[in-house]
Design a protein around this nucleic acid. Sequence first.
DNA 1: AAGTTAGTTTAATCAAACAACAAACATAAA
DNA 2: TTTATGTTTGTTGTTTGATTAAACTAACTT
Lengths: 381, 381
Amino acid sequence: MMIADQNLVKKMNKRRLLQEVIHHSPISRANLSKTTGLNKSTVSAQIQEMVDEKFIFEIGQGQSSGGRRPVMLMFNKQAGYAIGVDIGVDDMTVLLTDLDGSIVTERYFDLKQSSPDETIALLLTTNQQMIDTMPVSPYGLIGIGICVPGLVNREEQIVLTPNTHWNGVELKKIVESTFNVPVTIENEANAGAYGENIYGAAKAYDDFIYISVSTGIGVGLVLGNELYRGVHGFSGEMGHMTIDFNGPKCNCGNRGCWELYASEKAFRQSLPREWNDDEIASRLQKNDVELFRALENFGHYLGIGLVNIANTFDPEAVILRNPLIESNPFVLNALKNTLSSRMNVRFDTECAFLPSTLGKNAPALGACSMMIEQFINGITA
Amino acid sequence: MMIADQNLVKKMNKRRLLQEVIHHSPISRANLSKTTGLNKSTVSAQIQEMVDEKFIFEIGQGQSSGGRRPVMLMFNKQAGYAIGVDIGVDDMTVLLTDLDGSIVTERYFDLKQSSPDETIALLLTTNQQMIDTMPVSPYGLIGIGICVPGLVNREEQIVLTPNTHWNGVELKKIVESTFNVPVTIENEANAGAYGENIYGAAKAYDDFIYISVSTGIGVGLVLGNELYRGVHGFSGEMGHMTIDFNGPKCNCGNRGCWELYASEKAFRQSLPREWNDDEIASRLQKNDVELFRALENFGHYLGIGLVNIANTFDPEAVILRNPLIESNPFVLNALKNTLSSRMNVRFDTECAFLPSTLGKNAPALGACSMMIEQFINGITA
DNA sequence: AAGTTAGTTTAATCAAACAACAAACATAAA
DNA sequence: TTTATGTTTGTTGTTTGATTAAACTAACTT
């Protein structure tokens, strides 16, 4: 445990003030004093420091409310930039954002034919391009966050990627030594959860569960406004929660895993034939019965697992990340039906089930925001 | 968010010092300075305060290590006393402990024929008796913690007790107004988890899952060394996690709930005939095949749910609270077999599965320790 | 001109760190 | 046994630094 001294006091109050400016700008010193409870002189001193450090700037005078006009302060969201990378099973997203999480540059790649080595090369050149075209700023590139579809341990090493071959690749070291900035490697579901918490559907929630439904099902747990990672970093493997203990074998070793029923892969296997995305879209337009039956089933199986999640966590919200769910409220309704039929009135009315608002950018944005938060916390070091 | 000032600094350091004394006594001022990093003069000043407040006393001189002999300090665990009550479905435990959690007085009651009103009367008179016979101390009774077998919301109201009739009983108000000390109402599994974390099998763990197996299955989640309660206080209802979505209906509304297979009630129903505890004990002695088969099955079904828990939380440990498990390592082995057969080598070797060490006292002790922690935190207010 | 609001300056407060010191002891050489 | 040396413990007085209250200047509204 840490010991407390005046330095800690200053750090805490500085952080608090910066957060207030970030989330409520434009705001005046007087107003900061009111909202934080800190003395006016304390506010002035701290703000001056952060103005000198280029994190905050004065935007000019605001409206008077019967006296001297206030000087409005803004967070300098262009003080630096972050890169977020989402390495998927067969695609990659690379985003450059400012400190507000606003996307400056975005690039999407198809990885269907790529080996990890080729992907790393692509990642490095893309990052370099982004750095080269990045606007000039006091702090430049403040960090690179990378998420991968698999298990990442507490040392940020990739230890298991069921659908790809990233196991053991020393991604953190490679990227860190190339660009000499802080690098974080994170699980895709954790990054997505983080993104939704900072910028997306879960902004207002402190306790929520983020569910990424694709080839498998990945879960990010945000409990008490913090990502819960587990001892080894492997929490949220709820895709491998059994929902039928006599069910079919899964390659995780378990039987009747949730993702064997409710993943997008399972959904596609449940279709009468193999339909590509265009085919599915056009059948949606035409209210195709077979498709809707499959979608309803998809929602139903999702719902079965969600009952377990609601019973386990009693969360404020569950955020679902999947293109089909985001574009079809119908799936969400099917899912809610299963929930209300399987839970006596209690949770279903008091827990929000929402689609992701960041969509496919969620994990990369989450990766960015992790670096941004690290950077902002470092400001007060 | 709170603002920081010198008062906070003092509080934090005082708390830190007190914790150090509690957990490493006897200890000298010099040693405290070393372990905490606080300056010797700071330590001296803070300790003096707590000596004056009767929380710490000087026990005398310790061994010299080549210089002046140190003055050894001890936590005054007899500065006050706490009462912990565990109201079960058909029994009640009432404990009086000192601030160390050592039991001073213990009483056990059979509630098989009691209504809530009768139980409350019994609780109040027992508490009064304990207060009357309690040793004199500077702070007297510092609080009463009570746990109940059901759902307790964040306002500490009892909202659902499936197997009894405590719903809506204003227990907190009743007890608080009778004794005029702080009262906490808590769910039985949460209290048990807390107890094991402070005094029992989970002392060394920051992230663990406590599982209370009786009529139903209750789960207490300790994540990051804190009890995770959920938004409404209803987390850990994992007894109603489906492990067979086509399974039999449960009165919670769900199907194939874990506790329909792995509760003690389910275990007893799985026996060829109704055996009482003595019968079971004697058959255990005689290595009765039918009983052992049932126990193995019991372990197997526990294991199925524990795989889900391991996949969900990636905990350091799982603590199992049930008399049969505590007295029969055999069940634990059966359970571990199921785990290793259903999880590819990863968790089973790195997550400890342990029986409760506090046994039936776990929840009441947890309730005590909640009050003690509240009190100790209040010291530094 | 009077009253309000914004922001700065000044002096006081307080907790911890620092530095110097005294007390009490261990060790080993004389 | 005696003495000298160095170590450890705990206290005392001083300094540092962040917050704060209060006084003050600045700028605006009515």
